[in-house]
């Protein structure tokens, strides 16, 4: 973790309320892991006062970092008005990233489920998953059909205009499926419906779901992952102040298990505790999160 001054290289509207911010930082591009975030001071003044947490969207080159953000309030609005050449104060990389696993994966072993702006940090994940899943180890022959072994990405959005990152995922060699609530592109309905279909059919040997998006979607994905006994990692959001675990301002409820005696039998008793999204997360296992 470092506090850095970064110079904006590019800050442009992608579509609707979505913007891309590019800046040079060798330190971040070298050290950041997928799922980690930065805390950005979007103005030099007192409004807004707090830093804003934003996920790392892509590492474009050994020294270029990209963030994809949605303008939803004062802070993101102010950020969208900053120009190339201007300097921002950034703290990062923060939090623990996704657990990428260690082994070279079998066919179709990773499913990424993205809802709305939740697609942004998953692109960085796909960047890092690609070498694991798409390429067999050095010296071995790749017997897999060309479409297998690639991460499967399910992108959901309200309408086709709100769809994000389809091209990025495809350029990374992912298999991409689209779902829109109004049916204006891809399947019609919810991305979670498609996830169920996928788990029911072609990807029976998947080993991990990675997901980011609105809370209602994350909750549904977590539920499905439990039902299908598929490990699932969620990237969660909460309001933040410090971003490093000192203010205790960003709690989520997680299950804690501790051994205890029931009669003569040792059992695991489940209780809950608060963990901090910034320091203990922002990635959590679906089976540990308690939904309110």
């Amino acid at each position: 973790m470092n506090q850095l001054k970064i110079k904006i290289s590019e800050n442009i509207r992608v579509s609707g309320n979505y913007f891309r911010l590019k800046f040079r930082s060798e330190q971040l591009s070298k050290t950041a892991r997928p799922g980690q975030f930065i805390e950005l001071k979007v103005t030099d003044g007192l409004e807004p006062l707090l830093r804003k947490p934003l996920g790392i969207h892509r590492i474009i080159s050994p020294n270029m970092v990209e963030v994809l953000y949605e303008v939803i309030g004062k802070g993101t609005e102010a950020l969208s008005k900053r120009s190339p050449g201007e300097v921002l104060d950034v703290i990062g990389p923060l939090g623990n990233g996704f657990d990428l696993g260690s082994r070279v994966e079998g066919p179709g072993s990773r499913v990424l489920v993205a809802g709305g702006i939740g697609a942004a940090p998953l692109v960085f994940l796909a960047q890092k998953l690609r070498p694991l899943s798409a390429k067999p180890p050095e010296g071995t022959i790749d017997h897999r059909p060309s479409t297998l072994g690639r991460p499967l990405v399910l992108i959901g959005a309200k309408t086709k205009d709100a769809l994000l990152c389809e091209k990025e995922f495809k350029d990374l060699g992912c298999n991409v499926s689209i779902v829109t609530e109004d049916g204006s592109k891809g399947h019609k309905g919810f991305v979670t419906d498609l996830l169920k279909k996928v788990l029911n059919t072609q990807y029976s040997i998947l080993n991990t779901i990675y997901t980011c998006g609105p809370k209602s979607m994350l909750k549904a994905v977590a539920h499905i992952s439990t039902k299908y006994r598929t490990p699932c990692q969620l990237l969660l959001e909460e309001y933040m102040a410090c971003g490093v675990g000192v203010c205790l301002g960003c709690p989520i409820k997680v299950k804690t298990q501790y051994p205890c005696l029931a009669g003569r039998q040792a059992i695991l008793n489940t209780q809950y505790q608060y963990k901090m999204v910034c320091k203990d997360g922002p990635v959590f296992r679906a089976d540990e999160v308690i939904w309110e």
Binding site: L46, L49, L50, Y239, L248, G249, C250, P251, Y274, E292
Partner: peptide
Amino acid sequence: GNPPPRLVETPAGMLNSIGLE
């Protein structure tokens, strides 16, 4: 401590309700 949200930003300031966690 208190249930989330525990923080909210106000003009040039912030509110917290950590609840002595």
